[in-house]
Design a protein around this nucleic acid. Structure first.
Lengths: 136, 136
DNA sequence: CAAATGTACACTAATTTGGTGAACATAGTG
DNA sequence: CACTATGTTCACCAAATTAGTGTACATTTG
């Protein structure tokens, strides 16, 4: 199951995608309207900023806003950042591959084969799901 | 990512499936040959016994053995037991459904739609992967 | 300057994970 | 029967992870 943090990130981004091009939105407004603990949301938005997905403005008219076009942000990227590898086994992970502790011949391993298929399909679904798709 | 426990369970079961019909196998032999901490493996095998998948024999000629035919044990059952729900969001879980904390209309939610598809495909793959498939 | 905003860094309580310890119950062997 | 090898039970534990919170600071606008 995805962590609360990942879910908060997806919800917040979906909202920010809806406001794309309309200027900055306050953390507190985002927190209230999307029912996310305000202080926790700060951490999440900051992380998204460091990823280059969000921008922020300080001061009285400050807030957060989506930097990229909604079609250029997909769920694979978000899940990877907040949840870790998409694969269920590290021997089938692209970004966090580690050789299997159990089997000698990974190519012959049937367990691996199943989880590789699951990873590939999951990744494809997540990657093709952009914020633009989510707000459609 | 799947927990160590789930991986141990899959590896142990695969081995027991290979020995299906050949009598009981010792915990210690299973632990040694599959490189699983012996005492931890005990817990796992006991859990599998309580699920009705394994049987055991006490005493000098004791050990564990697969009760069902390898084609009648699939990975969906194992993953559910040791890992929890297959779904990545509880709003798309079959066995552990919980309504979403964020959205009003789940049927209209695009986030939900994506993760429902992922769950359904993942479940189908896991369910069709029996121990017989794994040892083939 | 004052007030409202985001930023930084550390801290924490509860839960989960990956085990281990000690004592016990049962079945076969000499 | 006594012995020993096996599984069983139940409790405990250390480390990591999760979901936050506390406090102080920096920047911008009115």
């Amino acid at each position: 199951m995805l962590s609360q943090k990942t879910r908060y990130a997806m919800v917040a981004l979906t909202r920010l995608a809806r406001e794309y091009g309309k200027g900055a939105i306050l953390i507190s407004e985002l927190a209230n309207s999307e029912k996310i603990p305000r202080r926790y949301l700060e951490n999440i938005l900051l992380e998204l900023k460091k990823m280059g997905i969000l921008g922020s403005k300080l001061g009285k008219t400050g807030g957060y806003f989506l930097l990229r076009h909604p079609k250029d942000v997909n769920l694979a990227e978000i899940v990877r950042q907040f949840e870790g590898p998409i694969a269920l086994l590290s021997c089938v992970s692209e970004k966090a591959y580690q050789s299997c502790e159990f089997c000698k011949d990974e190519l012959a391993c049937n367990i691996r084969k199943v989880f590789k298929e699951i990873r590939d399909i999951t990744f494809a679904k997540l990657e093709s799901t952009t914020l633009e798709v989510l707000i459609a």
